[in-house]
């Protein structure tokens, strides 16, 4: 079963109530051809379980890593991803777009 925005935010609430550390990543701005629209969510817990997507798979790994830091520190972060730079092995979007992602902890 695919996860939907309704499931994702409900899951975030359920996970937090179970006592897990939970972070929510949200696409807040896109330029060019971005794979997921503004407002899309990815929810991550402290065991790196996750639900939803902010880029259809391109940068989820990096967002999850950053989310673990946000969970530890508690301060929200703004992440920006652009075109993939294969020579530098950098994460990025192969579609050529750019996205800004806001990551916050559920307290």
């Amino acid at each position: 079963m695919l996860s939907t925005d309704t499931d994702i935010l409900k899951t975030a609430e359920d996970w937090r109530r179970e006592g897990r550390g939970v972070a929510i990543a949200t696409v807040i701005e896109t330029w060019g051809s971005a794979p997921r629209p503004v407002g899309s969510h990815l929810v991550i817990d402290d065991q790196t379980n996750f639900l939803g997507s902010v880029s259809g798979g391109c940068v989820e790994g990096a967002v999850i890593t950053e989310a673990l830091d946000v969970l530890a520190e508690g301060k929200p972060r703004m992440l920006e991803f652009g075109v993939a730079d294969e020579t530098a092995w950098q994460v990025g979007l192969s579609c050529g777009g750019r996205i800004r992602v806001y990551v916050e902890r559920v307290d």
């Binding site: 935010l9 975030a12 609430e13 937090r16 109530r17 929510i24 916050e104 902890r105 559920v106 307290d107």
Partner: peptide, 9 residues
């Protein structure tokens, strides 16, 4: 985000 806010939403 506060949990209460997520819950309201």
């Amino acid at each position: 985000m506060r949990l209460s806010l997520l819950s309201d939403l």
